[in-house]
Amino acid sequence: MELLNLYQNNYLIVFAFLCLGILLPVVALFAAKLLRPKYKDIASKYTTYESGIEPFHDARVQFNVRYYVFALMFVIFDVETVFLYPWAIAYEKLGIFALIEMLIFVVMLLIGLIYAWKKKVLKWI
């Protein structure tokens, strides 16, 4: 029960921090709204910045798929690290067997990395 309380209280602190993290921008923006003087409304102020020329087309166009590949790679390796963390903690008890097992797991993913490397996916043009 003691431990449960400790655990819950610790996350309560995290929650307090989260509330403050959201409140600060809200309060600051509200204060700014009250404090600032009235500015003149000029239509050209509300155009998008584009180095001084009239903005043309929408900025939201289809972009290079390369970013997508990096995102995919990230997912693979991030999941790998999620598996590696518990392994690292339990390593003391598991010993050399766990090391070999993890080595096999990582090598399989490394093959993926080498494949991507050879496919020139990692090359940024």
Binding site: G21, I22, L24, P25, V26, A28, A31, A32, K33, L35, R36, P37, Y39, K45, Y46, T47, T48, Y49, P55, D58
Partner: peptide
């Protein structure tokens, strides 16, 4: 704090407003 609050016409207004909060 006293600067003018500009939100461009072409922007996605709700997202434009929420983004700094999510970043901070």
């Amino acid at each position: 704090l006293v600067k003018e609050d500009l939100i461009p016409k072409a922007s996605d207004r709700p997202m434009f407003i929420i983004a700094p909060v999510i970043a901070f």
